[in-house]
């Protein structure tokens, strides 16, 4: 599988097998499903973000804790089919403003999930094959990323479009720092700014022709109001890539979307026109009447 070509990926595989044997098939599964392209992308990401063995081991510890927390919450969700009641401010205190939690678990966990969770990886491929390709073809000059998280999509955009500049927003200082680090490690920071801002409550005059907002809606108490603000940020004739997680019981998911139509209806109510969408389940449904977590991405104008 490795043939000496992917030293970081090989180390990642060894850490899983030795330290977390229940994760031992993760890398083999990725290789089998997505092949060399995937392996090259993971190798590059690991080399850019976790240069030393110690950094990689720490990131894997964070990822496993993040992933197992998600899986346990999902297992409890299977019984209740509801997210636990939480306010945005509660989640912000517990997660987004909790630098230690963000840096040790959440951000490395989320970043590695973009490559190691098949539905997350498939969604990033959808982004690259559709929205990002349009940006390249149209010669996009600027973009806005509303809710940068780890900075993963901002980084992909900056890398694919050599003349583009971008602005990212997030409420979390740790996210801002991590996104800037990722962009800097790919030597793209001279074309990117990340700002601390809550787009739900703080005014901004920013406008764009290319808007990204991934994995944000389910974190909000009132995603429709947020979408209405995004509609103002996206200039007429512009294009947006907006995603949501459905039936996915994570520590910071507040708003429960049960199917893609609920997201679609809010997008339309906010004034967007749907151009294309893709919905991807996290895994094959295990039982009838137990919802499967999935991610849905919309390309909107």
């Amino acid at each position: 599988m490795f043939n000496g070509n992917y030293p970081k990926l090989q180390l990642l595989n060894e850490i899983f097998i030795e330290k977390y044997p229940f994760m031992g098939s993760t890398i083999n599964n990725g290789f089998t499903a997505f092949g060399k392209t995937w392996a090259v992308e993971v190798e590059e990401l690991l080399a850019a973000m976790f240069a030393t063995n110690q950094q990689l081991t720490k990131a894997v510890d964070g990822y496993v804790r993040f992933a197992m927390d998600v899986t346990r919450r999902q297992s409890r969700f299977d019984d209740a089919c509801e997210y636990p009641q939480k306010s945005f401010n509660q989640v912000a205190d517990e997660v987004y403003l909790n630098d230690e939690y963000m840096e040790r678990y959440y951000l490395p966990g989320l970043l590695l999930s973009h490559m190691l969770w098949p539905h997350h990886y498939r969604q990033s491929r959808f982004f690259t094959a559709t929205f990002l390709r349009d940006m390249e073809v149209m010669g996009a000059k600027e973009f806005v990323d509303a809710g940068v998280g780890t900075g993963f999509l901002s980084r992909l955009t900056l890398a694919a479009c050599p003349d583009i500049t971008g602005v990212g927003f997030d409420v979390s200082p740790a996210s801002k720092k991590f996104a800037e680090l990722q962009v800097a490690n790919y030597k793209l920071l001279d074309r990117y700014q990340c700002k601390l801002l809550n787009l739900c409550t703080q005014p901004t005059k920013v406008e764009t022709d290319w808007l990204i907002s991934a994995e944000v809606l389910e974190h909000l108490e009132d995603p429709l109001s947020f979408l209405q603000r995004l509609r103002v940020i996206l200039r007429p004739g512009g294009k947006g890539f907006i995603t949501a997680a459905l039936n996915a019981a994570e520590i910071d998911h507040i708003y429960l979307y049960r199917n893609p139509i609920e997201v679609q209806d809010q997008l339309i109510e906010a004034g967007f026109t749907i151009e294309q969408y893709q919905s991807i389940p996290a895994y094959k449904p295990r039982k009838i009447n137990i919802p499967t977590p999935e991610v849905v991405a919309f390309i909107v104008t």
Binding site: P21, F22, G24, S25, M68, R72, S75
Partner: peptide, 30 residues
Amino acid sequence: TARDVDNWDSLAHVQIIVEVEKKFGVEFDL
């Protein structure tokens, strides 16, 4: 260990934990 059983992945691992928690009335720290 999970290495010895082909179905024992992370989902199965958590399912075991959750079922044990339910059956024995305990809640494990992550």
